[in-house]
Design a protein around this nucleic acid. Structure first.
Lengths: 153, 153
DNA sequence: GCACAATAGTTACATCTGAAACCAATCTGG
DNA sequence: CCAGATTGGTTTCAGATGTAACTATTGTGC
């Protein structure tokens, strides 16, 4: 007879459920800032990283927001062209360029952050305080564990 | 003074954390079946849906796995070309086509499912039984709630 | 001090994706 | 019936993405 373990119920399968939840949340959030500010998801993430940690080099941005350097480069190019980010060559190491938000970039950042936090709060409203704490702790442990699984093959 | 609520700490921001967790898990899983079977994520999902619920029409597949009809159409085209899926016109409504796995498709499905379940088990090993139950319940509630937020704007 | 490896970042190419237009078949109202 | 709306599905075109090649600069071993 077939072992029960050989049946994959997609709707209960953890990788699948994580994927559709993250996609739904990401799209909902994008709806909030795409209209008013016309930012791609990658551009918004770069702005969020620089708004919190500037100045950063492009690779440091990539480490913060888990984006590869090509994606960062392209997002930064778009933001530079629109005057939301400023770039200054590092005089000590001229391969590097330090990035920070321009005044307009800071303004955009300051207007998106409350929208983003408000959305997060509305999402978290599905859970009470104790459940939020649990969910955060459990998802963090899953993330750490998934990273170590990946590294070990 | 600036309100604390105006600071967005990306590394604690729920949409961001869900996104990188889902991405990491999805890529890790893809590593398992991409090498041996050369399937795209969308193709694997179609196979999983048909392996569990066949026969389905293309739109039913899309509903099951939350993929738009263009993506389903393309994945099915690739799977038909490679002989992993069979298509039969619905005689009662000739717009519709019923899809099911071919013998080769069933074989691929039967070989991937244990890999996928094994990966899920290794991921879940980060949590004990009670914690898994909690995480599943909480993430389900977040998903349901995110859906209703999206619908209500 | 110089060839060679390593690092920061960009460009090029091929693939993937999504929105909208499109085709074919079926349903609906008069 | 039969014109127009609806539905199932594919194609098209434009934008996004990933891999690999590339440029420029800095670090390293001899």
């Amino acid at each position: 007879m077939p072992s029960p373990s050989q049946v994959l119920e997609l709707e209960k399968f953890l990788p699948y459920r994580l994927s559709i939840l993250a996609q739904l949340v990401s799209e909902s959030l994008h709806d909030l800032y795409a209209g008013p500010f016309d930012l791609a998801v990658t551009e918004w993430r770069v702005i969020a990283a620089l708004g919190r940690f500037a100045p950063l080099t492009a690779s440091e941005v990539g480490q913060r927001i888990v984006m590869d350097k090509v994606a960062v480069s392209r997002a930064v190019a778009g933001l530079l062209k629109r005057g939301l980010v400023e770039r200054a060559a590092d005089r000590a190491d001229r391969r590097r360029a330090l990035l920070r938000l321009s005044p307009r970039g800071r303004s955009v950042h300051a207007r998106i952050v409350p929208l983003a936090l408000q959305y997060e709060a509305r999402l978290y409203a599905a859970l009470n305080a104790e459940e939020r704490r649990q969910f955060d702790a459990l998802s963090d442990r899953l993330f750490i564990h998934a990273q170590s699984l990946r590294r070990s093959g």
